[in-house]
């Protein structure tokens, strides 16, 4: 039996089978960026339930209690091997890492910070997609974050996205897929359609065993590289060094 402590020592990767378990956002930051370099931004940005959606306030309150965060994105500035970067990490434990107005705003500000200061943007996704409880506002975050990607691309600063388990639906179909470089952790669920809809669509048809995994998306050309958690920091350092203006 796998002990929780044993998992924690190994960055929540099973030392026996290599399964990558989900990581709290702050752990991801610690694991990836230079020690004590992270400075959080917009920690207090919170949802104001614009639709007055049934039970949403309760769900928000319990997610806040559970995670100690106001919403599903932890964002800020950090250094990566001494290089300044703009960072955002999904907190999956906060309502499935879903993107409402707060997440959309924080991702947009991350990409705008990178564009303004000409520094790399690095985003770790772990999300079920757009947040149903904010209705059309959530859907519009797809457009808003995509607009920010276009702005960043024009500014000429690099955007690297790391898909972790899971990276789905409205987030995959917006900013996540617009990164210059896309990495994924092994075995992550990565797809457009939710399990229910995909199962309906598959009715009668045969799905490959690896359907909607990192490996499937790699095989079909949708991402650059599957990287083991222990190698992610080094890979990100290499990439930002190549794309970060080394050639003057």
């Amino acid at each position: 039996m796998l002990l929780s402590k044993e998992l924690d020592r190994n960055a929540r990767v099973c030392p026996h089978c290599g399964k990558h378990y989900r990581l709290p956002a702050i752990e991801r930051i610690r694991l990836t960026f230079d020690k004590d370099s992270f400075v959080e931004l917009d920690a207090d940005l919170s949802s104001s339930d614009p639709l007055e959606f049934p039970e949403y306030q309760d769900k928000l309150l319990s997610a806040i209690a559970k995670t100690g965060r106001q919403d599903s994105i932890l964002r800020g500035r950090a250094d990566l091997d001494g290089r300044a970067v703009a960072v955002a990490v999904s907190e999956f434990a906060f309502m499935g890492g879903s993107m409402g107005a707060v997440a959309g705003e924080k991702i947009t500000r991350t990409l705008e910070l990178a564009a303004d200061e000409h520094i790399p943007a690095i985003v770790f996704t772990a999300t079920g997609g757009a947040r149903m409880q904010e209705g059309l506002y959530s859907l519009m975050q797809m457009a808003k974050t995509s607009a920010a990607c276009e702005k960043l691309a024009r500014a000429g600063a690099p955007f690297i996205c790391v898909f972790t388990d899971p990276t789905m639906a409205g987030v995959l179909a917006s900013y996540a897929s617009l990164a210059d470089i896309i990495l994924a952790e092994p075995g992550a669920l990565v797809g457009f359609a939710g399990a229910r809809v995909a199962a309906q669509a598959a009715a009668g048809g045969k799905m490959p065993d690896d359907f909607q995994t990192s490996e499937f998306n790699f095989r079909t050309g949708m991402l650059d590289k599957i990287v083991h958690r222990k190698d992610l920091r080094d890979t990100l350092i290499q990439l930002t060094s190549h794309l970060g203006g080394k050639n003057g």
Binding site: L172, V197, A198, A202, T220
Partner: peptide, 15 residues
Amino acid sequence: PGLESESRGISEAIA
């Protein structure tokens, strides 16, 4: 939402 769409990158195409 089908297999073909996922294989050819429906998410990327929308984005």
